[in-house]
């Protein structure tokens, strides 16, 4: 697992005799040098294009609007007092958490359904269900937007056929929130499905057989065999998706641009509006930085859980 629990060979190969110890150490040293060199491109990439700009963003967030004076944490304090920003925090959490829970849930169901059907038929179904994940998000969101459009809404046409009134899809706060979440779920569920399907396939068949012999029902198998075996993959997928969803820009930007009345703004779109459109780059940077502690908190707990479980399995 990516949490660093894999044990490098060096650790389990202590020198067997005193005479070989020297060469072993040299060997280990050479190995770690090579190991470091192999990681160097990764380190440079991350350092140059993620870590350094991240620190620069922190620096930016501590400047005043004209970027002429250092104001420390002033921007953060200022933001926290603004009602609009409190709304943005609430909405970001609502958007990300609801979307991730739905994606995880539907993805889980889909993976099970998929697992139920014979392998040779799976391919076509998998293919069809992966389509949303495959279309570039910015473009598929445009389609959604077009289907929600007030004058041309294809959904409203269907509603009208059933004698129902038009729904102002993106015009009323809660409906618009629902729409942004729907699009995100539509886009992200296939990824969960594929990850879970992969996990399901790796659960050894013997475990189920053993459970059957013990007289376990379907639900019991699910709770006592499948879920524990999948816990790590669920945790990692949820974490990954949580991060990506929290940082989402495309969907909200294209669908509602934060409206109506700021009721769909999330961190990224609000940062864009404040930082780029209104020319207040330091404040925009502060808005985006608010994501970090929230996500770091989630990541800490998820990864700690994963590490613990991996250790339990290992020992």
């Amino acid at each position: 697992m990516a949490d660093g629990t894999s044990i490098p060979i060096g650790a389990i190969a202590p020198g067997k005799t005193a005479g070989r110890r020297g060469t072993m150490r040299k060997f280990a040293q050479r190995r770690s040098t090579i190991g470091f060199l192999l990681c160097l491109p990764l380190i440079l990439l991350i350092a140059g294009f993620v870590i350094y700009p991240a620190f620069y963003a922190i620096y930016l967030s501590m400047l005043n609007k004209k970027m002429t004076a250092f104001v420390g944490l002033g921007n953060f304090a200022f933001l926290l007092q603004r009602h609009t920003f409190q709304l943005v925090i609430f909405q970001s959490c609502l958007f990300a958490i609801t979307a991730v829970v739905l994606k995880a849930f539907i993805g889980f169901i889909l993976a099970h359904l998929m697992h139920n059907i014979p392998g040779k038929n799976q391919r076509i179904w998998r293919g069809l269900l992966l389509v949303p994940w495959v279309i570039p998000l910015a473009l598929s969101t445009l389609t959604w937007w077009w289907m929600f459009d007030p004058s041309y809404s294809a959904f409203n046409w269907v509603l009208n056929q059933f004698g129902l009134a038009n729904v102002p899809w993106l015009g009323v706060g809660w409906i618009a929130r629902f729409c942004t979440i729907t699009v995100n779920v539509w886009f992200g569920t296939p990824f969960f499905m594929i990850m879970y399907l992969a996990a399901l396939k790796s659960v050894p068949e013997q475990l189920y057989e053993a459970a059957s012999i013990d007289g376990a029902g379907t639900m019991q198998k699910l709770f006592f065999v499948t879920l524990p075996m999948m816990r790590n993959i669920i945790a990692i997928t949820v974490l990954f998706s949580l991060i990506v969803t929290f940082a989402d820009f495309d969907i909200v930007r294209i669908l509602t641009a934060g409206g109506p009345q700021d009721m769909t703004h999330v961190f990224a779109t609000y940062a864009f509006q404040v930082g780029i459109q209104s020319g207040d780059i330091p404040l925009g940077a502060s808005v985006s930085l608010f994501m970090f502690p929230i996500l770091a908190f989630a990541a800490f707990f998820v990864l700690r859980g994963v590490t613990q479980r991996t250790k339990e399995i290992a020992t």
Partner: peptide, 14 residues
């Protein structure tokens, strides 16, 4: 009813 969600093209389309 959906005036609040108008963007710059909605009025054109209407």
């Amino acid at each position: 009813a959906d005036a609040v969600s108008y963007d710059d093209a909605s009025n054109n389309r209407a």
